[in-house]
Design a protein around this nucleic acid. Structure first.
Lengths: 187, 187
DNA sequence: TTTACAATACTAATCTTATTAGTTATAATA
DNA sequence: TATTATAACTAATAAGATTAGTATTGTAAA
């Protein structure tokens, strides 16, 4: 009688990072916790609920790390530091990240709220670039899209060579930011 | 005794586009075809195999449409036209696109091969930009990443407002291409 | 300290799917 | 027409999620 919801979520996250989102089943979680599958229902609503909570936990952790990375920085440097934190989280927790993407489609109002916090951080950093025409309605989707897509497509290589992947991300980001400064004006 | 593998795949694709990848089950496919579930095994290996074939079919279709969009164009204009074709396929077939992403992780050698064809097209278009330093090893991941990420994150809105989404993609792409020209040299 | 309650684990049972084995009907072909 | 391969079917098994109902135990009030 010691098991907590947090432990259940952590166990599911471990399985996801090891075997992918598809490897997460109540059966597998219960087995790892050495309890019977139905006992999990004392802690969670159902499988989808567990996955959602795992995603939320991961999103909050990502947001926290990105916030830390942004401290003391502004403009391009801040965006790059935050992006590196984003990629490093993905490398460390690919299964949780996969679950986060799943939750962006199968999520709740809470999912949307945490995602808003992420976008809100990026908006502040975009504004800190002091662009002539800081159209965050255009720049934000560009950045979030690039970040998700670039990191996702590079994840396989990134896990094998994290430093190289971080370098690659920073260079690609330099190019993207160069374009943003060109389009939206030097500050 | 008329059912063909092509019909099975098409049926699965229809379900995916309507209910998402998660909605595709042998049960659902069989029901739509008015046959019993085990009968599907006369046409496919198993569920994963069906999903993979659906993905391959979709990837080939995307490649074909992108190739058509590139005909008669070069440089930035070609990249933009191909990107629009990419987004338009996603809007028309979100479930198949979701399955394609699944297949990039759970795929076979054939999956990798079709994906190579896609990248090969983009490489040719990048080279057609006549950059001073056409480092496709850097530019290709930047472009594929941006394209996947931007379109994925905008898909919800894009389905509601396709024209607006296409415009948004083209503008974002202008910015990215501006950065690419800045970093890798005007031709 | 003892009792009552709430939390949590368990077993048993049901439902949905995927998958395999074995059988039967049929369309094409020799 | 007889043969054969194809593709449908039924029956059966296994994995998983979920629900219902029962038992146990830690906590906290009496």
């Amino acid at each position: 009688m010691r098991l907590t919801k947090e432990t259940v979520i952590q166990t599911a996250a471990d399985i996801a990072d090891k075997d992918g989102l598809g490897g997460v089943s109540l059966r597998a979680v219960a087995e790892k916790l050495a309890i019977r599958t139905p006992s999990l229902y004392n802690h969670i609503d159902n499988l989808d609920g567990l996955l959602r909570e795992m995603a939320h936990r991961g999103m909050r952790e990502m947001n926290a790390r990105m916030l830390q990375a942004a401290v003391g920085r502004s403009g391009d440097a801040a965006i790059k530091a935050v992006s590196v934190a984003y990629l490093e989280y993905m490398i460390a927790h690919p299964g949780v990240y996969e679950t986060i993407q799943w939750a962006l489609w199968h999520g709740s109002a809470e999912t949307a709220e945490i995602f808003e916090q992420y976008k809100s951080l990026l908006v502040k950093l975009i504004l800190s670039c002091r662009l002539k025409n800081p159209d965050t309605g255009e720049i934000l989707p560009l950045l979030t899209g690039f970040l998700h897509g670039y990191c996702t497509m590079q994840l396989g290589k990134a896990i094998k060579n994290p430093e190289g992947a971080v370098r690659g991300l920073e260079m690609a980001l330099d190019t993207v930011l160069l374009g943003i400064h060109g389009t939206y004006g030097q500050g």
